[in-house]
């Protein structure tokens, strides 16, 4: 059982949703990232996803693209990702890495999974890894005792939902809409539909991501989801802030708001 499993069990017992924050390693800077992680943890997030910045982020909208570009210009590499993961786990929250597949393959599939475990990480979210290509990865995550977290979409049909969730650990990542990451004014109605279809095929916790940025949205999602994932909204604040200090204050404030949101949904 990973720490993520424990966190998801705990929030279920508390009859609320978990708040899960995403931040790319090396953004806004190596040290700024560590401070942002600490600020998010202090503000009450339950889990943190450390993004592995990638040169060709086809699942990401302009905000995360820009953050990845800044991070890569700063020279972020796999060691920095694991270091950020360690910072996160040291704060006491559950932490995972979110990455496109090629950096894992390049690093070495078994070694990557083991480095996650060695740094206290609970799992890895792999948005472009299909279950058909997952044999080596599932063997590695199984050996290193970490959660392989897969993303499902509104277009995923029921039989495929069953197949994908049968390989998943930690939680199922339900993409709220058809599209890329970014903040949206409203959470798509596809989300609740998808969550009920996932519920029908698995007992795993289900976290909803894509487009969430406000306490109100967190509240409405928390009514039926086990976790609420917020990424672009934090990154936007850091990108737009006049200084790193002000950016950290802003994400801390938003995280506190969202932490209230995930507790008032039911």
């Amino acid at each position: 059982m990973t720490q993520l499993d424990a966190v998801m069990a705990k929030v279920r017992a508390e009859n609320r949703a978990a708040l899960i924050a995403y931040i790319p390693a090396g953004f806004p800077s190596q040290q700024g990232c560590a401070k942002a992680i600490q600020a998010l943890a202090d503000a009450g997030v339950d889990a943190i996803e450390i993004g592995f910045p990638y040169s060709d982020p086809v699942m990401d909208g302009p905000i995360i693209q820009e953050a990845a570009e800044i991070s890569l210009k700063g020279g972020t590499n796999a060691a920095d990702v694991f270091a950020a993961l360690k910072v996160a786990t040291d704060t006491g929250v559950a932490a995972v890495v979110m990455t496109y597949w090629n950096p894992i393959e390049r690093y070495g599939v078994d070694q990557f999974a083991q480095s996650i475990a060695d740094n206290g990480g609970s799992g890895v979210i792999t948005p472009d890894l299909t279950i058909e290509e997952s044999d080596r990865w599932l063997a590695a995550t199984n050996k290193s005792q970490i959660n392989p977290i897969y993303v499902v979409a509104p277009s995923t049909n029921d039989s495929r939902l069953a197949a994908v969730t049968s390989k998943t650990g930690g939680f199922v990542y339900a993409a709220s809409l058809m599209g890329v990451t970014g903040t949206r004014a409203t959470v798509s109605s596809d989300a609740s539909n998808l969550v009920s279809r996932v519920r029908a095929v698995t007992d795993l916790p289900i976290s909803v991501g894509l487009g969430v940025s406000t306490r109100e949205q967190a509240k409405s999602l928390a009514a039926y989801a086990d976790g609420v994932i917020v990424g672009s909204a934090f990154i936007k604040l850091l990108l737009e802030a006049e200084s790193e200090e002000k950016g950290l204050d802003a994400i801390s404030h938003l995280a506190k708001e969202l932490a209230i949101g995930v507790r008032e949904g039911r």
Partner: peptide, 10 residues
């Protein structure tokens, strides 16, 4: 093979 978001599988 296929290394794509689940959204595109259909």
């Amino acid at each position: 093979g296929r290394f794509v978001p689940e959204a595109l599988i259909g």
